[in-house]
Design a protein around this nucleic acid. Structure first.
Lengths: 198, 198
DNA sequence: ATAATAATATTAACATTGTTAATCTAATTA
DNA sequence: TAATTAGATTAACAATGTTAATATTATTAT
């Protein structure tokens, strides 16, 4: 009976889609078992036949929503542009995406989701943002902008620069405005890549 | 009637202390109005005579707990040590403090606390960790390790490196162990300060 | 010192929440 | 068509933050 599995997956999807909608419209705090049930067209308790608990459902949402994020980011790829500039553009796009979608940041980086179900990890083979950055840094090596040995550190420092700024911005721990922060990101990447080779 | 104010402050302190204890013992999720009331020796609703709501109480705790953090950090200051090394030691200490006190990280950087009461902001004149880092970087300038113009960027990049690693470590978004991360911090600061001057 | 008043603390109550157990309904199988 | 199973629903629980009504204590006025 493979139909069983198909049906089960379909049911799960109803709840996941409902949850995604709610998250998008009302944020994570707006996500409740009752609302998910209602929107999916089932009773509130039915969820528990398909998901361990609410955070399990949330976890499925994360992996689904991650795709949106990637798509947004990749729209900024531009073959013609110099690779350092491409890294800057992409990092700023990454920042802007989360600045515009704070709940995605919350979900992807902050929410306590326990361990991810392995089912989800296995399916997550798409090209990650980290991977994109690495490819571009390798291009920088070819163009003699940075040293091959520094790729690792630079990748980490650039990622840190952006993530930490997102953290402070979205959690209102500093009071800089968006343009200011984007400038800082630009400056720092420029600093890292220009001074890298020496 | 200035006694009124004194008494009010005292009452507030009872609740703040109770809340701090609970946070230390059971984490932020363990903090409830009922528990605070019980531990402070009052009914659960009395809190609302002294604080707008639970998050207001939490905010007071943050500022109180911040002091603990500073003390811990400053214990690592060592006049004899080279300034680059001092920055590394201090950054690692900072990381370790939050690694050992994840709830402090949650409170200080992640929790949604709304705007801080101005009363608290005004009293917060203690030397911040950021300030300490800046002083040490200025020392590095004097020793010709870095350029004066780069202080800003370097301060930001070092802070970002540590904060972002804390974020990923504490929220289990990567799976590196503590020693590994501390090594990375060391490497990155070393990279930033060694390559800074060129 | 006692009565009136104001300040403060407590209890009761409400609306929400996640989650579980008991019950009902629809589908499958014999 | 009857028996069984799977699935969905309702009812219920305990915990939470918060508010309104009530009780208590402290202050003030007579």
């Amino acid at each position: 009976m493979d139909n069983k599995k198909i049906q089960r997956e379909r049911m799960k999807k109803y709840f996941i889609d409902a949850a995604k909608e709610i998250i998008k419209e009302e944020g994570i705090k707006g996500l409740t078992a009752r609302k998910v049930g209602e929107r999916a067209g089932y009773s509130y308790a039915t969820i528990y036949n398909y998901f361990e608990d609410l955070t399990a459902l949330m976890t499925y949402c994360v992996f689904d929503l991650l795709e949106d994020c990637f798509k947004y980011m990749m729209a900024f790829e531009n073959e013609g542009v110099d690779c350092k500039e491409q890294i800057i553009i992409n990092s700023c796009a990454y920042f802007k995406y989360f600045a515009e979608n704070p709940d995605m940041f919350q979900l992807i980086f902050l929410e306590d989701l326990g361990e991810y179900p392995k089912e989800l990890i296995e399916n997550n083979t798409g090209p990650s943002v980290a991977h994109f950055l690495r490819v571009k840094l390798e291009e920088c090596v070819e163009q003699d902008l940075i040293l091959k040995d520094d790729i690792e550190v630079l990748q980490d420092l650039i990622g840190s620069s952006v993530h930490s700024k997102l953290l402070f911005y979205l959690k209102r721990r500093d009071h800089e405005d968006l343009d200011n922060i984007l400038n800082k990101i630009r400056n720092e990447i420029d600093f890292l890549i220009s001074k890298g080779k020496n």
